[in-house]
């Protein structure tokens, strides 16, 4: 015997959207949408904070740019782009099905949009490497 959960096991728990055991792709889409939303909101403020360096003049901004060549920043850019692509394309599914369009094909719609996200990510990587 072991303690499984705290008292009143069936009561509401707001964090339950993160518990994806036994769930289908719709719940995964919702949870990932939330996670990317939280990440993108955080990134919005990081981005705005970084842009404040522009107010300090050319030397501050240009020396900051030199530090962004580090692999860490490229990796961060890739993560942000993945988040943006997932959130945007899943958003199209949420809006379309949310007004009654393609409701019966929501799974196919989700899979197609995620395939498109993967293609766009690869294209972006290709552009990134060509541009240098």
């Amino acid at each position: 015997m072991k303690v499984a959960e705290e008292a009143a096991p069936g009561l509401r728990r707001p964090s339950r959207w993160l518990d994806l055991r036994g769930r289908h792709e719709g719940a995964w889409a919702y949870a990932l949408n939330r996670l990317t939303a939280i990440g993108l909101i955080a990134y919005l403020y990081v981005h705005l904070g970084v842009l404040s360096l522009l107010a300090h003049g050319p030397s501050t901004w240009n020396s900051f740019l030199a530090t962004t060549k580090a692999p860490f920043f490229t990796a961060l850019d890739a993560v942000v782009l993945l988040g943006v692509l997932f959130h945007s394309l899943n958003g199209i599914r949420v809006v379309l099905t949310g007004v009654g369009v393609a409701v019966r094909w929501h799974r196919l719609l989700f899979r197609s949009l995620m395939a498109l996200a993967a293609i766009l990510f690869l294209v972006a990587g290709l552009l990134w490497s060509i541009r240098g």
């Binding site: 522009l54 003049g57 050319p58 740019l65 962004t68 850019d77 990134w128 541009r131 240098g132």
Partner: peptide, 15 residues
């Protein structure tokens, strides 16, 4: 702002 710009970021003069 990021894809058509060399290096992915504009320097101060370019901004």
């Amino acid at each position: 702002n990021h894809f058509v710009v060399a290096g992915g970021e504009r320097n101060f003069a370019e901004v």
